[in-house]
Computed example of a mutant assay.
Amino acid sequence: MKHLPLIFVRHGETEWNRGGKLQGHRDIPLNAMGRRQAARNGRALASLIGQRDWDFWASPLDRASETMRIALREAGRPDQAFRTDDRLREITYGEWEGMTLPHLFEHEPERMKRRDQEKWLFQHPGGESYSMLSDRVAAWLSELHGPTIVAAHGGIMRVLLHLIGGMSTDAVPFLYAPQDRILVFTARQVATI
């Protein structure tokens, strides 16, 4: 694959992450912990990026773009430019953005049951499904021309694990997406650092 290796960095923590709220397309800034996580990930990147030519991308949402800026500074590339692409935005939860899962289980039990039974295809009310998210990320991947570093969201990480890592659509939507680690996709493996 022409875009490998690909290094994925999830954005650092926000107050909505801390409170368990679904963020989706809401533009919530990093909190202090999130900035520390981004710095940690930047230090981890420093040993990986070396002198190789990389393409740098981020979601246009502030929490991902700020993560990329902090990570690049910590990796020794404070002036490195990066591009943003709307296709790298988090999955949109539509009407559910700003709500917590416990609230939804209490107030939307039937929809949540359907969601958990077929999470890949479940379309959030007024939002997207993971299948729809996968289609837009696949379109972005198809346009890459070389080794890539991207800062984005947990949903993006999950669909990359499906599209590049070959993980099942039954399992991938349920995976934990750490904010203090990076994923490295190569032709042979996926590694967490």
Rank of each mutant, 00 (worst) to 15 (best):
Q189A: 15
R87D: 07
G98L: 10
E66W: 08
P178C: 06
M132F: 10
N31G: 10
R115A: 08
R111V: 06
G76Q: 12
T67L: 12
G146K: 11
E66P: 09
G155Y: 04
H145L: 05
L121A: 15
K21D: 01
G155V: 02
M99Q: 14
T169V: 14
I28N: 05
E143Q: 14
A44S: 13
L144N: 02
E128W: 00
M132S: 13
A58G: 08
N17V: 00
A58Y: 03
R115Y: 11
Y176T: 10
L104V: 11
A81W: 05
G20Q: 09
T186S: 15
F174C: 00
A152E: 00
D85T: 04
A58E: 06
T92F: 06
L4N: 04
S142V: 01
L144E: 01
R89T: 11
A64Y: 02
L133I: 01
I193K: 10
W120Y: 15
E90A: 03
V150I: 14
I193M: 12
P147M: 02
D170K: 12
G126S: 08
R115E: 11
L121W: 12
L61N: 11
V159E: 01
A177F: 00
L22C: 04
I164S: 07
L4V: 08
R73M: 10
M1V: 08
M99S: 13
I182C: 08
R26M: 11
H124N: 13
T100V: 05
R43P: 05
Q23R: 01
T100F: 11
L45P: 04
V9E: 03
A32R: 13
R83E: 11
L48T: 03
I70C: 06
A138K: 15
W16K: 06
S59V: 00
P147E: 10
E90S: 04
Y93D: 01
V184R: 06
K2P: 14
G24Q: 10
M112E: 07
